[in-house]
């Protein structure tokens, strides 16, 4: 307890004395963790989006204009028997046109000018939740349906969900590379600031060495100083992410929810804040250790 009190007092005092250099380190860590947090937020939301769309994934089986009632019946049976469908809705050409008018009111007049209704009738198949994981079965059904009589085309959401998942993976990889570089820069900045602090305290350290102070007493304040800088940087990053999240919610929250179909975007969950705080402290600790190891 005495040692801890000593570490905290010395580290806080040293940070205060070198507050200008420490501020630079804190801002560098803050910037690194802000980018890390931003990527985590984007990644989390893209994953949620992919999962949500995966749950509501559907087939659209577009029918030829000359399809017969028997063929439609046969296609419906085929979908039901596959076991992957929760519901099958038949959409007539007129209903498709009406849906277009509702979805794109500005283009409604264009549709009116056409001599005939260009929209095909379709069977909209809602996949069962959980069946979305049975990708092979769904893929096989899509293949069978595409070759069936009366079918003009099959649109299967999962194909571009796979593309979305690819984008998520790409964003994650790029994010990890950038975050890794920023983390390294942050740790080196902390190390340099702690090194400056150690230099400023060289007489103190020399006296401690000469009187036989335990190494933990010599190194502890240096490591803790790094941890404090890292923690402070994390707080800066969390505050900046919180401000950004509030701004985005206020300005674009509604639009994003409408376009992406998500009621509420996740901006800064407690877990993410915890990860950032621990990450910052870990980076600071690494920086502090880099210097402390050199003091014997």
């Amino acid at each position: 307890m005495r040692a801890l009190t000593y570490f905290v007092t010395e580290a806080a005092g040293s940070l205060w004395r070198g507050r200008r250099a420490a501020s630079l380190a804190i801002l560098t860590i803050g910037a690194g963790l802000f980018v890390l947090g931003f990527f985590l937020i984007v990644n989390t939301n893209l994953q949620r989006l992919a999962a949500r769309w995966g749950e509501t994934a559907e087939f659209a089986i577009y029918l030829r204009d000359d399809v017969s009632a028997e063929q439609v019946e046969s296609l419906s049976r085929l979908v039901h028997d596959s076991g992957v469908a929760a519901r099958v809705d038949q959409v007539s050409k007129d209903q498709a046109l009406e849906r277009f008018r509702q979805d794109f009111p500005d283009l409604g007049a264009t549709a009116e000018r056409l001599n005939r209704n260009p929209f095909p009738a379709s069977l909209d198949v809602r996949l069962r939740p959980g069946a979305s994981r049975a990708e092979e079965a769904a893929e096989a059904l899509a293949g069978t349906l595409a070759g069936s009589p009366g079918v003009a085309d099959v649109r299967y959401d999962r194909r571009w969900l796979a593309r979305l998942n690819g984008v998520v993976r790409f964003v994650r990889t790029v994010g990890l590379i950038i975050v890794g570089m920023l983390a390294l820069a942050a740790a080196l900045t902390v190390a340099n600031v702690v090194r400056l602090a150690a230099h400023a305290r060289r007489d103190e350290i020399e006296i401690m060495q000469l009187v036989g102070a335990p190494l933990t007493y010599i190194r502890g304040p240096l490591v803790l100083e790094g941890v404090m800088q890292g923690g402070a940087g994390a707080v800066v990053a969390i505050a900046a992410l919180g401000a950004l999240s509030a701004l985005l919610r206020a300005r674009y929250g509604g639009a994003i929810s409408q376009v992406l179909g998500m009621e509420s975007l996740t901006f800064l969950p407690v877990e993410l804040s915890g990860i950032l705080l621990l990450g910052g402290m870990l980076l600071g600790c690494i920086g502090g250790l880099m210097v402390a190891r050199g003091v014997r």
Binding site: R2, Y6, E204, I207, M208, V211, G212, A213, P214
Partner: peptide
């Protein structure tokens, strides 16, 4: 007091 302090003596 710095010396006894860094040697971990009681206050």
């Amino acid at each position: 007091a710095f010396v006894p302090r860094v040697l971990g003596l009681a206050v």
